Simulated scan of single mutants.
Amino acid sequence: MKKIYTLFFSIWAFSAWSQPKIDVKKEFEFAAKQYEGMLASHPDITKFPQSTNPDGSPRDMKSSWWCSGFFGGSLWYIYEYTKQDKWKEAADKWTMAVEKEQYNTGTHDLGFMIYCPFGNGYRLTKNEAYKPIMLTGAKSLATRFDPKVGLIKSWNSFKGGYNYPVIIDNMMNLEFLFWAARESGNKELYNLSVTHADNTLKNHYRADNSAYHVICYGPNGEVLAKKNHQGAEDESPWARGQSWGLYGYTVMYRETKDPKYLDFARKIATFLLNHPNLPADKIPYWDYSKPGEERDASAGAIMASALLELSTYGGKDAKLYYDSAVKMLESLSKPPYKAELGKNNHFILQHSVGHKLGNSEIDVPLVYADYYYLEGLLRYDALRKKKK
């Protein structure tokens, strides 16, 4: 009887995981049309698409802005799906537009700025010109690691006089350093990434497995304060920060195969998917403590992409992760989150929140919401085809 049940469950699971719930082809056709409009409206490669201003005009930023790599990265994802040379050419153009940021030692966000465009470009084309740029960028990022503190410094200062703040977002830049460690043979880049992740796990997380946004450290790694910056309160779970952490620790398991990271990623997923304030469409409010307020499509897109990868590592909740991610992508692929063709300043998604407390980017499109949505679609498509 047990064998029959197991066979039945396997057939059911195979069928459930294999059924297409999202028309990936249609969604990439829409994304391509939107981004054709984006390219046409952005002839100046020193102005990077970011969001929409309160008056409805496009909000563009310089290459030194932490989001400058996402547009090129999204263009690479469109090329990956369509295989059309025009997208390869556009992606290369906007990737090279951030080349100079490889020398930027004043930011911890070089993973976003350099690895999202150059990393995807190198993965898809093996263009050797990209490799030294990434290796230089990784070295620049590593200069922000102080071995006495044991973490990569995020900002150079934080309100209250703290001069070694570390934000949960920083987990997202470790993937870049792991790549550079492999390609260069520099084991120190690997080691400092592990040290950063371990200290973040130790100090950034509460007993319920939710993350603080900002931890302020002293010169010897002592915790001086646990603070909020973009969330509602110091003790509230800021939605995008939770998604950054989930994604980051999933990557940590992929890169190290250390089971403690897989275990912790699963704990974060449990917190998020079981949160009483997670809406039925699974696109979170901008802060989990603020039900009824603005949603954050970017937090949903990041979480969906992370959960799809997490589902591939097995365990009793693998199907829950997969199904939840698919639900998120389904929600993002239709109104109100999906824009109308030709609208929304040519961004794909609507209804994200950048920094509500700072009165910045509230209920608007955000370039990184599009990036992780496209990544999620590609991961979903690959998993569905694999399971056929």
Rank of each mutant, 00 (worst) to 15 (best):
G241L: 11
D169E: 03
N170H: 06
N209P: 07
G221N: 12
L177H: 07
E175D: 07
Y162D: 04
E235L: 13
F178D: 01
E188P: 12
G185I: 07
N220F: 10
F158P: 04
N170R: 03
L224D: 03
K202M: 11
N173Y: 03
N199M: 13
L201M: 10
V149C: 00
V214N: 08
N209W: 02
S184L: 12
I167W: 14
G185L: 13
Y162N: 03
S210G: 14
V251D: 15
E188C: 07
G160V: 01
I168G: 03
E235Q: 13
Y162P: 00
R206G: 03
F176E: 02
I168H: 11
N170V: 09
T250F: 08
S236D: 10
N191D: 14
N163G: 05
L192A: 05
L246P: 10
H204P: 00
G161P: 05
Y190L: 00
Y162Q: 00
E235W: 09
S154G: 11
K202S: 02
C216Y: 11
A181N: 03
P219I: 11
L224T: 00
A232I: 14
W244K: 08
E183S: 09
C216L: 13
I215Q: 01
A211D: 04
T195M: 13
Q242V: 07
A225S: 14
L246H: 14
K226E: 03
V149G: 05
E233C: 06
L177M: 13
R206K: 12
D208T: 01
Y247A: 13
R240E: 11
L192G: 06
S210Q: 12
G248P: 12
A180M: 03
I215E: 03
K148P: 00
A180D: 04
Y205F: 13
N186E: 12
Y190S: 11
K148W: 04
A181C: 05
H196V: 10
S157F: 15
V214E: 01
N186V: 05
D169G: 00
S157P: 15
D169L: 03
W244D: 12
A239Q: 05
N220A: 05
N170F: 00
N199W: 04
A225M: 03
P237Y: 07
G161E: 07
I152K: 07
A239M: 10
A211E: 02
I167R: 14
N186R: 09
L189P: 01
S193W: 06
W238E: 07
N220Q: 11
G218I: 02
E183K: 10
N186L: 10
K159H: 15
Y249H: 14
I152N: 05
A225E: 09
G218P: 11
W238M: 00
R240I: 00
G160A: 04
A225V: 07
R182A: 15
A211T: 14
G245H: 11
G150C: 11
V166K: 07
R206Q: 10
P237R: 06
Y212T: 00
N209S: 15
C216M: 12
G218S: 01
L224N: 10
H229N: 13
S193A: 13
G248Q: 08
K226L: 04
Q242Y: 07
K153L: 07
Y249C: 12
I152R: 05
